[in-house]
Amino acid sequence: MPQFNFAYFLPQLAWLGFIFAVLYFVVVRATLPKLGKVMQDREDRVIGDIGAAETAKGEADEVTQAYLAGLGSARDEARATLAGARAEAQRSLEARLAAADGDIGARLSEAQRALETARDAAVAEVEAIAADAAASIVERFTGARPAATDAAKAAKAALAG
């Protein structure tokens, strides 16, 4: 096998050393560190962008949360205002109803009283007419007119009976 011919070792090793040194120190060292830096920059930038995006998303979430909370509290407030207005309206309605009731009661009792007065007056008038009529009848039968008080007493007793 030519591979184990040791006379070939030295020239191959020498050229390998030379070529590999050129490859490493002239070619690789001149290019790859720069490339590695760019790759690292890109990675950092992508990670930074992802971080910024995450921060922005967090902020947006907070804003949404605040908006929803505001919406909820506004809704609660509106509901409370509505309930207050409704209660107020109910109260004033009840008060007015009560006032009207009182008014109506007063006028009713007044009318009642007037009615009773009128009735008493009418009754008294009827008694007087009855007494007068009775006195006139008695006068026609007997020719003597009874005393007005007697006739009134008799008429009252007869009307009551």
Binding site: A7, Y8, P11, L16, L23, V27, T31, K34
Partner: peptide, 30 residues
């Protein structure tokens, strides 16, 4: 000492050339 340029050295040099082209085109101005 025998440090002759052989076919082995030639193909190593060709490999060096191929890698150099690859790297200088691809990575000299990243």
């Amino acid at each position: 000492y025998d440090l002759s340029f052989t076919n082995s050295a030639l193909w190593m040099a060709i490999a060096l050339g191929v890698i150099s082209v690859f790297l200088f085109i691809g990575a000299s101005r990243p």
